Amino acid sequence: MAKKLWVERNKDGSWDAFSDEGAHLKFGHGKGQFNPGDLMKVALAACAALSSQMTVENSLGEGKGATITVEGDADHKANAYTAFREQVVVDARDAGIRGKDADKLKERVEKHIEKSCTVMHTYEQATPVSMDIKVLTK
């Protein structure tokens, strides 16, 4: 069964997202809040982070991870993103990894992200969205 997600509006104009597993995230258009476009970029970065986590920890130690940044090109007339640029930075300086070992780590991280990142795979293809609107009345 798929995880159930939903959003609810707050009195201050912000929104809360919930999952049936207990996750919670606040978002909106206010200062200090993620907007939906930001959340798309966060999803892409988070997917790369989780996809590469095991490889990075195996090489650098438990609790270590990559820093991932994502930028997007927006077409404001179409109200859509046309491209995302993702940068994955693995700080291996403290582990003493250099040269060919660094190249091998880079290759393993890339392979894991390319294999496992569902969000990236979804963004790379046209993904239909269906919508059902219900207006509840008495």
Rank of each mutant, 00 (worst) to 15 (best):
M1P: 12
M1C: 07
M1A: 08
W6Y: 13
N10F: 05
K11S: 14
G13A: 12
G13I: 12
G13S: 09
S14E: 00
S14A: 13
W15F: 15
W15R: 04
A17T: 10
A17R: 03
A17L: 07
A17G: 15
S19T: 15
D20W: 00
D20F: 03
E21G: 08
G22M: 04
G22P: 02
A23D: 13
H24M: 11
H24G: 00
K26P: 02
F27K: 00
G28Y: 00
G28Q: 04
G28R: 00
H29Q: 13
K31S: 10
Q33E: 14
N35V: 10
P36N: 08
P36T: 06
D38E: 06
D38M: 07
M40Y: 07
M40V: 12
K41S: 04
V42I: 08
V42G: 01
A43V: 08
L44V: 04
A46V: 03
C47A: 01
C47W: 00
A49P: 01
L50G: 12
Q53W: 04
M54E: 14
T55K: 02
V56C: 14
E57F: 08
E57Q: 15
E57K: 07
L60A: 05
G61L: 07
E62I: 07
K64I: 03
G65H: 06
A66W: 00
A66H: 08
T67P: 10
T67D: 13
I68Q: 00
T69D: 14
T69N: 09
T69M: 12
E71Q: 14
G72H: 03
A74I: 15
A74S: 14
K77V: 15
A78Q: 12
N79W: 09
Y81H: 02
Y81I: 07
T82M: 09
T82H: 09
A83T: 06
R85S: 13
E86Q: 15
E86A: 14
V88Q: 03
V88S: 03
V88H: 00
V89N: 11
V89F: 07
V90C: 03
D91S: 15
R93F: 06
R93H: 05
R93P: 05
A95Y: 02
R98K: 12
G99N: 09
K100N: 05
K100E: 13
K100W: 06
D101I: 03
A102V: 03
D103S: 09
K104I: 10
L105E: 01
E107H: 14
E107D: 14
V109H: 01
V109W: 00
E110T: 09
E110G: 04
E110Y: 13
K111H: 11
K111D: 04
K111M: 05
H112K: 04
I113N: 02
I113A: 02
E114R: 02
E114V: 01
K115H: 10
C117S: 02
V119F: 02
H121W: 00
H121R: 09
A126V: 14
T127E: 12
T127R: 08
P128T: 09
V129F: 08
V129N: 11
M131P: 04
D132T: 06
I133R: 09
